[in-house]
Amino acid sequence: MSDLPAPEEASIIAPVSAVPSSTPDAPEAPPHALAPAAVGLWRLQRFIRLGVVVLPFSIAAGIGLSTVTHWGVGAIVGGALLLVNLVLAIVWPPLQYDAFRYAVRHHDLLVQSGVFFRRWSSVPLSRIQHVDSRQGPLERMFGVQRVLVYTAAGVSADGVIPALTEDNATALRDALSRRGGDDGV
């Protein structure tokens, strides 16, 4: 590999000296938010999950623990599980809504998400294979749609914009699917 440039000739975008020790602020958030109805939708979804999954599980866990320990332990653990999920169902959706922002820039789709686990992702428009908009029964009830962005990188890498008004979803889908170019595959 003698024809390779010397290491120092390679353009390094973040040299060692650039690594700071201070804690920086988060970058400026992308401008577009989801439909405000997302909060209600997510709350409803969480309450349904609470009734269908968490409640039976909490009761089962409480009874199970009561049989092997004191009945009070089972009641506390089962009750705590229910209470935590109830609080999350009320408090979490607005936080989730505030944390989610997106923008379609000239060259990419930029998405910021996550309350505790923050994530900034960029999908170059030329890499988008196809765009899909979906609407389940609950989403239909709230008048919102999901937009799913597929690239060749696989399912886990796809971008999902979870709750947009129908007009916004259509506009976003059209804006994303009209771009062409080298898909890198």
Partner: peptide, 28 residues
């Protein structure tokens, strides 16, 4: 893992040379 501003600098470099204003969307 690197400092967040370095990570965001790399992110910026890999996703586009310079920040661009959002594409105007009718419904956005």
């Amino acid at each position: 893992d690197v400092a967040l501003d370095v990570a965001l600098g790399v992110f910026q470099d890999l996703t586009g040379a310079t920040p661009q204003p959002p594409v105007p969307m009718e419904a956005a």
